[in-house]
């Protein structure tokens, strides 16, 4: 499988990574060489092997359902670019 220019532009847009037209060729070559490596790995027979969701074969530890976090709004908002009435302000988004 290899990616087209359009695929690269779409992936870049979805990932919010700015890739200029001049860079697309180079990015495309790099991505395709990574995909080539994956293709090579996919040739290995993995019948009967359970896919791993994590490289370590250990299980998740769980926490009890208790409130441990205090209100730290003031400290957190001290580094925010713009704040009003306790809200973080961001450039207007309407979907």
């Amino acid at each position: 499988m290899s990616l087209s220019h359009q695929d690269v532009a779409r992936i870049a847009r979805l990932s919010r990574i700015a890739v200029t037209d001049a860079e697309i060729d180079a990015v495309n070559r790099q991505l395709n060489s990574i995909l080539g490596l994956i293709e090579q790995m996919q040739a290995v027979n993995t019948d009967g092997i359970e896919p791993m969701a994590h490289p370590q074969d250990v299980s998740l530890r769980l926490r009890e359902d208790v409130v441990t976090e205090p209100n730290r709004r003031e400290a957190c908002q001290a580094v925010a670019p713009q704040v009003e009435k306790g809200l973080f302000l961001v450039p207007k988004v309407i979907e």
Binding site: Q82, E84, K85, G86, L87, F88, L89, V90, P91, K92, V93, I94
Partner: peptide
């Protein structure tokens, strides 16, 4: 997201 008018910006809670 609160889309009321915050000087043309969006408020996030």
């Amino acid at each position: 997201s609160l889309h009321e008018d915050f000087h043309g910006m969006t408020g996030i809670d």
